[in-house]
Amino acid sequence: MKQQIIVSGIGGQGVLFLTRVVAQAGVLRGLPVLTAETHGMAQRGGTVLSTIKVGNFASPLIRTGQADVGLLLWEANLSVHRPLLKENGRLLINAAQDGEGERIDAAGLARDLGNAVLANLVLLGLAVHKQALFCLAEECEAAIRELAPARFVDQNLAAFRLGLDPCHSSHCQELAERE
């Protein structure tokens, strides 16, 4: 099993937490995992990128055109990080409007839950739902339980499940009604 994943967003969107959850899901499965994260100045609202490599690797970084999966929390980063993806790589994007890749209004759904930052786990839910990632829903949920502070676990799981099954949310039904 080998998979190379990028997580792209801007500082403050929870890119680091999303990265840790995916990586921990790999650890729980007993796989070797390497990640690289952006810390420092860029975390103040600038473009940040994490890479996750699951399986037998020596370096945490991903060459151009080698990522299997891209999780994008900030659509405008597409032009910056799209080149890292393989031609047939899977692209999952937090965006309200139509366009390239598989999209979900993760921020909108997260706002319904009361916190736009939860968009990160909504997007993860979608990626697992679409079977783009190496990991299963149960593994992600176990990782969330391990990593989230106790008082936020339920909220985080709710966000993840919303992404897993977006059309059961009130938000999606409203959209359907409007259409």
Partner: peptide
């Protein structure tokens, strides 16, 4: 040689919170 990698674009600049 590897395919020419695209010019690194910087994306969103950081700001004070």
């Amino acid at each position: 040689p590897p395919a020419e990698s695209p010019a690194e674009r910087r994306g969103q600049r950081p700001s004070l919170c």
